[in-house]
């Protein structure tokens, strides 16, 4: 593995390898006084974030540091053409300065892929950095899907054959896209549940089912993944009101009771309590929200490990 841009690039073997590695790293760190592995000593990891993020950035930073990589955080602002340095120049600068890995979050879909392609054309003495997509526009967020899968595997024992509902603003969700491809690769059945206005035109081509009525789906689900209703991306008019959205799609106590006993509740965070998910549900033992965060660190350690560890010739 050279880069991680999309979960669609992962086959079942490589996805499971990442999840197994995350599990092993988790065990290795369990109960340790000093949570530090020497694996990535001497490697330089840059997080390049063009969007606000607390959990993802912190998670990558901790993952790098627990593996002894030098982690540098770069916050960038604004679009490339409008003002300041272009994305390409920023990427070239980081590469020339010696970054082994660039973890990028960017508001434009495809920004991570562009970094990969530019890396191939930059004339440098050393090899171009590995690129990890930490969220590009409304395209993908592959490490989020991996941590969701890790959490589901832990809670349910397995993913193959499970039925997983993804609920809410699929249209603007990079989490939904990454999960649809990863979970189906791992053998799960995915059903997207949203009002038609929050589903992309063309969703029929995705390897999943689509429904509009949450109540009708609940009894058949092994897990329900609530998506953030991304207010800042809303251009208005996708649904009549927050109240009506809640009536149709919020995960309330009543709906929690309609799920099978074993079913798990996931949320990528940050949660909008009330509108998306009732506080009682978010804090219930059925909710795996904090496990997701914990697994996020291990999954990202696994990703960095597979991108950066090992002899350079293995990484070509």
């Amino acid at each position: 593995m050279r880069h991680l841009i999309s979960t669609a690039d992962l086959d079942a073997i490589s996805a499971n390898l990442l999840l197994d590695t995350a599990e092993r790293l988790k065990q290795a760190l369990l109960g340790r006084e000093v949570r530090k592995l020497p694996t990535l000593r001497g490697r330089t990891v840059v997080t390049l974030f063009y969007e606000d993020s607390t959990r993802t950035r912190v998670s990558f930073e901790i993952a790098g540091k627990w593996m002894s990589a030098d982690v540098i955080n770069v916050s960038a602002r604004g679009s490339s053409v409008a003002k300041g340095e272009s994305l390409r120049d920023t990427a070239a600068t980081l590469a020339a300065a010696g970054a082994d890995c660039v973890i990028i979050r960017h508001p434009a879909s495809g920004a991570a892929q562009r970094l990969v392609d530019w890396g191939g054309s930059i004339n440098l003495a050393q090899r171009a950095p590995s690129v990890v997509n930490a969220g590009d526009g409304i395209h993908e967020h592959p490490t989020q899907a991996l941590l969701d899968a890790a959490t589901l595997r832990e809670r349910l024992g397995s993913i193959a054959g499970r039925r997983i509902g993804i609920v809410g603003d699929v249209l603007h969700s990079r989490v939904a896209r990454s999960n649809v491809f990863l979970l189906t690769t791992l053998g799960a059945e995915v059903v997207l549940i949203a009002p038609p206005t929050l589903l992309p035109v063309g969703v029929a081509d995705w390897p999943c089912q689509v429904g509009h009525h949450l109540d009708a789906e609940l009894a058949g689900l092994d897990a329900v993944m609530m998506l953030r209703v991304q207010a800042e991306r809303m251009r208005g008019g996708f649904f009549p009101s927050a109240r009506e959205y809640s009536i149709g799609y919020a995960l309330t106590q009543r709906r929690l009771d309609m799920l099978p006993e074993h079913a798990v509740v996931l949320h990528p965070g940050p949660m909008v309590r009330g509108m998306e998910i009732a506080s009682l549900v978010a804090d219930s033992p059925r909710s795996a929200v904090l496990e997701q965060v914990r697994n996020g660190v291990h999954v990202r350690m696994a990703v960095l490990y597979h991108l950066l560890a090992g002899a350079p010739e293995d990484r070509g």
Binding site: S109, G110, D136, G137, I138, H139, E140, R174, R177, P200, V201, G202, V203, A204, D205, W206, R235
Partner: peptide
């Protein structure tokens, strides 16, 4: 076509590009 980036359809949906219907 507010914010539109690509033909609205399967490819744009997959790539996360806002659709131009």
């Amino acid at each position: 076509t507010g914010g539109a980036q690509a033909h609205e359809g399967a490819v744009a949906a997959r790539l996360g590009l806002t659709g131009w219907p």
